[in-house]
């Protein structure tokens, strides 16, 4: 029994030691690398899916689907024009970062600020969608949501898409 107790104690002490060494190691390496992350700062503005505390910009696929089939939201594609041409959510408008200035008024002029908007890009971590959403919120649009990894999940669920055969070369 004594031996067993020692084993638990040793295990717990080792566990604490491992946590300590990991923390030390990770902080040292992070401090040394040029692309270090600010450890204590709230670095999440880079992901920009939550703006005000408690306000989550993410929309689930089910909600997005409901919006889509009720036609209660405008869908905006934040990917590049090339990606958009190759295929996009049916009825979505393209509002890419690169030619935001020229496209913005063209796409957004007929959309009232209180209209629901669903923004998407492709890939779990693509930032263009959330960047666009934050931009729209700052611009005064009030109901903006992001469908994370939108293009992929939309296709995976066999929802309506539009493809432009001319541009697939």
């Amino acid at each position: 029994m004594r031996c067993k107790g020692n084993k638990w104690l040793a295990g717990l002490l080792q566990a604490v030691g491992i946590l300590f060494i990991s923390a030390l190691l990770s902080l040292i390496v992070n401090g040394l690398r040029p692309d270090r992350l600010p450890i204590l700062a709230d670095g999440t503005s880079r992901f920009r899916l939550a703006t005000d505390p408690g306000k989550n910009l993410m929309v689930s696929l089910d909600e997005a689907k409901k919006h889509y089939f009720d036609r209660s939201a405008v869908f905006l594609d934040a990917r590049s024009p090339e990606d958009y041409e190759q295929g996009h959510i049916k009825g979505a408008f393209n509002l890419p970062q690169e030619n935001m200035e020229e496209k913005f008024s063209e796409v957004m002029e007929n959309i009232p600020p209180e209209r629901s908007i669903v923004v998407y890009c492709d890939g779990e971590n693509c930032r263009s969608g959330s960047d666009l959403a934050v931009f729209l919120l700052e611009f005064g649009f009030t109901h903006v949501k992001v469908l994370v990894n939108g293009w992929s999940v939309w296709q995976e669920n066999h929802l309506p898409v539009e493809r432009n055969p001319r541009d697939i070369s």
Binding site: L19, L27, V29, N30, L37, P38
Partner: peptide, 16 residues
């Protein structure tokens, strides 16, 4: 506020 620390710390803990 814990996101960055977790992202830095967790992988090193896994390696160790």
């Amino acid at each position: 506020r814990l996101i960055n620390f977790t992202a830095v710390f967790l992988p090193w803990m896994e390696v160790l």
